[in-house]
Design a protein around this nucleic acid. Structure first.
Lengths: 228, 228
DNA sequence: GCAAAAGTGTTTATGTTACACCCATGT
DNA sequence: ACATGGGTGTAACATAAACACTTTTGC
């Protein structure tokens, strides 16, 4: 059953806002464009959607091709389609945001992406296209969603200390949080389970915890709603 | 600066989940398709995006063409792009949801949309394409967002009684709400202002209120956050 | 005067905030 | 032994939940 009349079609791309956390501030992964337009500018990783793949698959493929990242948390963000956002013509872009753990290391070496590097979200270079808008929206979404969805853990190693988790929240939300209240509240929901591992180093060792998705899911099914 | 290589392009459409409230239950506006594929089936209003218009404009234009609705609340929902969602070939659809007031009456009489009619969300006919998925997502979004964004008012007349507002919340959230607590809480935020109008009818007249967006915006700027 | 919806406060329970000291380790 | 980050409880305060009767109108 083909089309009886062919409407003109915009080009379709995906772009990814890739967040990381280095223990200090929130970072975004940018690539330096190796092709026109905006050659040499920093941009979000992304590219054209193939005809046989769905949109999530396209985003994952581009992430793999341009940054060698695999198995990251990925969620659709928004679709940007203003005429004029790309000087080559009408291009509609489905934007995603991704969260990567510190131990997943991006590498570089693709044709369209000459270089990939982490940039602190609070100190960004000028970006190609409307990527600054996309990035801003990704940040808003992350800030909003981290307060009621268990996505913060996707930015930490599988096993983490409560202090690391608190610092992550503080970095994303941009405000300090009381240590005792933070721990009390999070441990009350029993989806953070203590492991028997500890950090080593110059000071008192900290217990490592992990996020237990099974427990979280079962709480959610019971109508439970976590916040901050 | 044209494209140096032309990637194959999916077709691009918009689809709208249009919600209404009849004082009793939540309704969705569906059109009966006048063309293949799925001719005769119920579907969401929508259609192809033109090359010169942005995505919001496309959604508004389709809404006007197919249902004669104008000046409705409209917000992007999600983009659906699985290959195979349209039997004619690859079609990516940017979904929107819209909220219309009871006094805005949709009409019908378009070539692709032979008929438009409200359906209760709790009793829907089978839908064309993946429109049932889109609709489900629209409902989820509405249920989530009405609790912390002032969008419920978009489903009521400009002037409304507190009981109407409460019934709207009850219909969308699917649970009863205590009358005194509901009124106390909403009136404490002073963005609901009483008018000097009253309902007339068989019983004690109820005072009509209106939503004051200026006051709401100024509260938001002060860092205020409304919930339920 | 009766049926039907509008309107109105107080008490209790629950959750949130503020706050300071001791502990374990490496150097 | 000291510097550094890890870990812990309680009291004040604020918000949410439960709950029943009086008022106003049309018929």
């Amino acid at each position: 059953m083909p089309f009886t009349y062919e409407y003109p079609r915009p080009a379709l791309t995906v772009d990814c806002v890739v967040f990381g956390f280095d223990g200090d501030g929130l970072m975004v992964l940018l690539i330096r464009r190796g092709l026109e337009p905006f050659m040499g500018s920093w941009a979000l990783p992304g590219g054209f959607v193939d005809m046989e793949e769905n949109l999530d698959e396209a985003a994952r493929r581009e992430l793999l091709e341009e940054t060698h990242l695999k198995e990251v948390f990925l969620e659709q963000l928004f679709t940007f389609g203003n005429p004029g956002r790309d000087p080559r013509g009408r291009v509609v872009s489905v934007a995603y945001y991704a969260l990567v753990r510190p131990d997943q290391n991006p590498a570089t070496g693709d044709s369209d992406a000459a270089e990939a590097a982490w940039h602190p979200v609070n100190h960004l270079p000028p970006l190609a296209f409307d990527h600054a808008d996309i990035l801003r929206m990704g940040l808003e979404r992350l800030r909003g969603k981290i307060r009621y969805q268990p996505i913060g853990f996707e930015l930490l190693p599988k096993h983490f200390t409560l202090t690391q988790l608190q610092e992550l929240y503080e970095a994303i939300l941009g405000r300090g949080i009381d240590k005792r209240n933070f721990r009390k509240k999070l441990l009350a929901y029993d989806f953070l389970v203590p492991t028997d591992e500890f950090t080593t180093g110059a000071h008192r060792p900290a217990r490592l915890h992990r996020f237990d998705r099974r427990r979280y899911d079962s709480l959610v099914r019971k109508g439970f709603h976590f916040e901050l």
